[in-house]
């Protein structure tokens, strides 16, 4: 049974630019394996070992799979998976300024 998978722009180089692809499987992990078969390398961006990468969120229909059964969450035909990379960041470390050129420019008008 076909599962619809929504691909974020950062991963579309793996899918030849496709925003939406189809995959097969009975669990999220099987769907990812199916994606890997067709789009070589994409699983390395989704998984860290055999776990979902810390900064990747996957929603099954409208539910975050981390609040279901994670990668073992069952899927059925017609389901829609959305891959949503996290938005996060941290404070600037001053010592790193040594490696930045042009940081004193200020472009606001």
């Amino acid at each position: 049974m076909s599962i619809k998978v929504m691909i974020p722009s950062v991963l579309r180089p793996f899918t030849n630019g496709a925003k939406e692809v189809s995959a097969e499987g009975k669990t999220i992990m099987e769907v990812i394996a199916s994606l890997e078969m067709n789009y070589n390398g994409i699983s390395t961006r989704l998984l860290s070992g055999n776990r979902l990468h810390r900064y990747i969120n996957i929603f099954l229909n409208d539910e975050d799979i981390r609040f279901a059964q994670g990668l073992d969450t069952p899927v059925t035909g017609g389901d829609r998976l959305t891959v949503l990379p996290a938005v996060a960041g941290g404070a600037f470390v001053p010592s790193a300024m040594m490696h930045v050129s042009g940081w004193t420019q200020c472009w606001i008008r």
Partner: peptide, 22 residues
Amino acid sequence: HSHTASIAWPSREDIEHAHYPD
């Protein structure tokens, strides 16, 4: 986002987690 005790420049973590190239 804001930096509250450093300059307005992307941190290493900002760059690592910049998953939206558009």
